[in-house]
Amino acid sequence: MEKFEKLKSQAIPLPIENIDTDQIIPARFLKATNKVGFGENLFRDWRFNKDGSENESFVFNNNKYSGKILVAGDNFGCGSSREHAAWALTDYGFKVVISSYFADIFKGNALNNGLLPIQVSPETLKAVFNAIEENANTELIVNLEDQTFEVANTDIKESFDIDAYKKMCLINGYDDIDFLVSKREKIEAFEASRKF
C-alpha cells in the first residue's frame, strides 16, 4: 500500500446524501476477478446516459472540477459491503473522501485500501461545498500526522478522528494482513485454550 502523509488537492463536490455502494459501483460491474479497472465504472449510472454517452450535467463530466478528493453528502457509502466501492474510488484516483458521515463497512474498506475517509461536521461540510461552488479551483489540505483538514486560504479548518492503529498503518503503508500474520503464535495459543 502507498504511504499517506499529506495531501493538497482540488476536490470534486457531490452534494448528495445517502450515496450507496450500488451508485458508487453498480452490481453488474462486480464480476471482475481482480482489483483494477473499477474506476471506469465509478458512479456509472450517473456519469453516463443509457445510450452510453456522457451525462454532461454530472459533476464528474464537468472539466471545471478535478482532484484527488471527493466531497460527498451525509452518510456516504451506505448499503452493501462491497469493497469494490473503495477500489473504484481509488482506481479513479481519489485519496480522500470527505463527508459528514460514513457508513461503517465502507469506512473500514476505504482505510484498508489507502483511501482516507474524513468525517467533518455538517457545518464544515456545507462550508466546503460553498467554497468549491464559489471557486472550483479551491484547494483542500489534509495532514494525516496532525489529523487536520483545511480549505486553503480560508479559515475553514477542522481536526478529524482516526483510529490510532489505522493511522499508523496508513502512514507506514502496511495493512492488517501483515499485522495479523505476525500474531500467529498468539492465535494458536488462543485456539488451544478454548473450551467452546
Binding site: S81, A86, D176
Partner: peptide, 20 residues
C-alpha cells in the same frame, strides 16, 4: 457480520479480524 474483501483475505490468512 459482513466484511470487505480485504478482510476476507485477513480471515484466510489468520482466522482473525482486527476490530474495535
Amino acid at each position: 457480520f459482513g466484511i470487505g474483501t480485504s478482510q476476507v483475505a485477513q480471515v484466510f490468512a489468520s482466522q482473525c479480524l482486527l476490530l474495535s
